[in-house]
Design a protein around this nucleic acid. Sequence first.
DNA 1: GCAAAAGTGTTAACTGTACACCCATGT
DNA 2: ACATGGGTGTACAGTTAACACTTTTGC
Lengths: 262, 262
Amino acid sequence: MAKKLTIHPALKQLLEKGDKQFQSGLSVDCVIFGFHENVLKILALDVKYINKWALPGGFIKINEPVEQAAARVLQERTGVNNIFLQQFEVFSNPTRSDASVHQSRYKEFGIKIPKDNWLMQRFITIGYFALIDFTEVKTTESKMDAEYCEWIDISKLDNMMMDHQAIVLKALETLRTQLAYTPIGKNLLPKKFTMPELQKLYETILDKKLDRRNFQRRMLGFGILNKLNETRKGGAHKAPFLYTFNDKKYQRALKEGLYGSW
Amino acid sequence: MAKKLTIHPALKQLLEKGDKQFQSGLSVDCVIFGFHENVLKILALDVKYINKWALPGGFIKINEPVEQAAARVLQERTGVNNIFLQQFEVFSNPTRSDASVHQSRYKEFGIKIPKDNWLMQRFITIGYFALIDFTEVKTTESKMDAEYCEWIDISKLDNMMMDHQAIVLKALETLRTQLAYTPIGKNLLPKKFTMPELQKLYETILDKKLDRRNFQRRMLGFGILNKLNETRKGGAHKAPFLYTFNDKKYQRALKEGLYGSW
DNA sequence: GCAAAAGTGTTAACTGTACACCCATGT
DNA sequence: ACATGGGTGTACAGTTAACACTTTTGC
C-alpha cells in the first residue's frame, strides 16, 4: 500500500487560497530551450503521478504582469535571471484543461479536490519561450511539486501532458521563423564560442545543413560578433577562433531586426 | 439635471452575472484595420461617458476559445464573418485596468458598482487585429453600449482610453513586420482593385514611397494575383487594369509565407 | 497637344551560392 | 604524411533597384 505523504504547506495553500492570490483561470507555460552536444533540448518536469512530461508553468499573481510571472517561473526552475523571454501564443482550447491532473497530484496526499474549487475550472495559458545557456542552469527543486526539471531532447517529446507538446511545437515554429530576422545564440551558447558551434546551433534549429563558409560570412556581416585572439584548443584538427557577442549591437539587432526589409 | 435612462437588461446582467458567464479578469480587444481613400483607419467606439475612443472588445465566455471571442466581437461590431484575425500580444500591466471607466458607464443609470464586483478587478487583455474591407462593413449597434463604431484615422488616435493607443501601435508594428513575408490586401481591399490601389495600401502601412514598376513586378512575382481583362474607367488619365486575388494561392502564401527564407 | 497616370522594358549593382585552395592539428 | 576540420577568396547566378520610354485619358 502506498505510503501517505505529508502535503507541503504551499500546495495546500494553493488549493485553499489560490483564487485569492492568483488571476483566475490563467497560467503561463514556459518552453525553455537549451543547446548541448549539438542537440536542442527543453526543460520539462517529470510528473510522476501521471507519468508524463510537463512544461514548467505557473499562475499569475493578482497585480503581477504576465511577463513577470513567466520570469518568475524561469527563475524558480533554473535559477537564471534576466533572460530573453518571449510571449508567442495564448492557448485557449476549452478542452485543453485537464482537471484530473490536479486530482492526481492531490490524491497522493489523500485529498479530493471539490468540483467548485478554482483549480477545477478551465484554464487559458500564455506560452512563453526562453533561450538559455545550458551550462548556466542549476535546476532547482520547486516547493510545489518537489521535482527537478530535466533536459529532454526536442525529438523525444511525445508523452507530454495535455496540450504541452503542441505548445512546444508552436514555440519551435516561432523560433524558426524568428531566426531569419532576429539574432539567436546569445543565451543559448556559452560566453565564448566558435563559429562551428554557432553554425551547429543554427543547423539544429533549422534542421538543415548550411554552408560553412557562407554561414561565417553572413554572421560576420551582421556585425554582432567580436572575434577574439584565442582559439579553442584541445580538439582534434585546426583550432577554431573564439567569438563573443557584441552586446550593444546584439541588443540593437534584437530590437530592429537583422535586415531593414523594405 | 441629466435625464435618468433605463438600463439595458444585458448591461445589468453583465454586472450581476458576468462572473458566472465569463472568464474572470480576461478580455479581448480588437484592432480592426480598414483602408479608405488612401488612409489607414481603425474602428473605434466613441465612449461618450468618458469622452474617449475605445477599441471594440469583449469578454471570453466560459468554455469559449479566445479566437472565437475575438471573432464574436468582430461580428457584433461589423457584421463581418470569417475574416483574417490574428492574436498579436497580451497586455497585462497591472495598472492598465481602469475601474472608473465601468463606474462612469453605470453611473448614467444611477448605479454604483460595488468594489467587490468582478468588473472592478484587474483585467488582462488579449490583443487581436483584423483586416477588413472598408466597403463591406455595416457598423451595427451593440446591446452593451448602444454605440456604433466609427472609422478613425490611424494618425488621429490620441485620446484613446486606458492603454488602447499602445495596443493599436503594437498592432501596427506587427502588421508592418508581417508585410515582408505575408500577403496583405485580400481583406483590406474590394474584390476587384488596381495595382496602384494595392501599392497605396502598402505605402500607407509602411509609410514609405515605393517604386511603381518594381512594386508591380514583385507583386506579380508572388503569383497570388489574377489579372482581369477590365480596367477601372472613369478616373482621369490612363485606365489601370483590375486584379483579384487568387484565393487558393493567397491562402497558401498566408500559411507558408511569401519567401522560403533559409 | 499637354499633363498626369499607367503599362512595359533594360541595365547596373548587389547579394547569395557554389566552389577551390590553403592552413593547422592529432594520430 | 595524411585525414579532418577550419580559415580565406573568387566567380557565377539570381535578385533587386534605378531609370527611360511609350500609351492612354481628360482638359
